[in-house]
Nucleic acid binder design. Sequence first.
DNA 1: CTGCCGCCATACCTGTCCGGTATCGGCCTC
DNA 2: GAGGCCGATACCGGACAGGTATGGCGGCAG
Lengths: 281, 281
Amino acid sequence: METRELRYFVAVAEEQHVGRAADRLGMAQPPLSRAIAQLERRLGAELFVRTPRGMALTTAGETLLREGRVALAAVEAAERRTRRTVESADRPSIVLTAKAGASSELMAKLLDAYAAEPDAVAVDVLLSAPGHQAPMLRDGRADVAILHQPFDDLSGFDTEALSVEDQVLILPAGHPATARHSMSVAEARSIPDLPLPRWPHLDGSYPDGPGPELRDLTQVLQLVRLGRTALVLPESAQANLRDGLAVVHLTDAPPVTTVIAWPPHSTSTGVAGLVRTAGRL
Amino acid sequence: METRELRYFVAVAEEQHVGRAADRLGMAQPPLSRAIAQLERRLGAELFVRTPRGMALTTAGETLLREGRVALAAVEAAERRTRRTVESADRPSIVLTAKAGASSELMAKLLDAYAAEPDAVAVDVLLSAPGHQAPMLRDGRADVAILHQPFDDLSGFDTEALSVEDQVLILPAGHPATARHSMSVAEARSIPDLPLPRWPHLDGSYPDGPGPELRDLTQVLQLVRLGRTALVLPESAQANLRDGLAVVHLTDAPPVTTVIAWPPHSTSTGVAGLVRTAGRL
DNA sequence: CTGCCGCCATACCTGTCCGGTATCGGCCTC
DNA sequence: GAGGCCGATACCGGACAGGTATGGCGGCAG
């Protein structure tokens, strides 16, 4: 199986529509149809059922989508890491990716401590939306990542835990619910006039629901102050809060573990040094 | 990058010789030369230095070999698992791989216990040479594996430990060293008339050294009885020993952890059931 | 020092197959 | 029942993979 075929398949599987997938791939529809049919013949597997509305994945197709995505990421990682080996041959550097906005305190401490190491190399920090860090590590855009259990998928990485913290509910100051010292997540969800915001999926789309679409944390905090929404955050985020907000402890929210993660078999001394430094914090 | 290019590159990197690699790939030498040159151009990286003896990997080449192997295994896994999804659609089954010869007691217990489960599926057992289990899990030839720390590379798998045991030295009965109750690995290595056997690499070749080449465990045990070699084994292997052998405890050999491992994101209920059963043993 | 050998690169040709346009056939909708 | 949407088929041209023949270059033996 060639990566080209795999890319075609993933596009069709994601769009559930040959025409749109062809569009996305920058090619015409017929060759894509043919490529999919040929892939099915070669694999001896029906990957899609053709419906009047488009293409729906079969069980075999779901398997190929799941496994194919990690395979494609691995190929991309091989390519990118090879390129970077050349680019950074003279000036070694590593790419660290982390969630934009959060854990800035931890990051600052880590970067400072690492920069003081004798064999430190340059660290390029790549901040991005929540949930994008693990994919970046998987496809080679990053060399190390700060990830968060249980939100990120850590499978396939070597990791080292850095901290564990509980989550709290952020409310508008003066809201009746602030009278409570603690509550359950179910209770927090069902406060009638404060729907929790919706986080974007990896593709940028949002789930259905009443809450506001969360794009920028400070803007959402402003919405909280205005009494339009509430927010569940790790405790450490409290440090950055300004006036107009109240905090209620959550009894049954899962604790958040912050970890540093890197691809196995990494030979980078920079990555090793950064991990060692992180472990000493 | 296409998987074809990657396969070509890996062949050349392993053979360090374009002609032999072309041979292995069943093609002529010139197109392979050209494909490698083209790959280097597209990656913007010198992958090999051309020597009068053949091709030697550069640093970038080593990166691509390491990462490319796991990428190729992932692509193969995607293909194989998709095929198996179809084949075993009517009669679900899973492939369990384990080291031939060892842990037979554990395996028997596990398979018996699992077969007694209400939702058990058929288990095809795939016995193979030591060290081959992890690759089989990586490229989709197996769905679950019994692996051994620290010998197998567990990276990228989900695992659950089943047992931990120390290693012991197996000697010919009556050998002077049997007077000792325990010794270090270094001492065991330096018993003058008993060189330890050599284990094969993954490709079937053997490291240099004085000891006999280990192919079949029972044959090597015969060699031990004849006073020609000694052997380091996990304790549990003692159960299968016959007469003519003596056991000395090793003080500093690393303990061997037997684990059950499976690929992350596995959706197989059979794998889940087997893992659950193993955890209860 | 020279000729030969081993190894990779280049030149050139051929066939395959990828991708494009045009069009068909089925199904749902209005 | 007509039109629209969607995937499949037919057919064509060009790019490129792979084959054979040969060149270039360094090492080594005589």
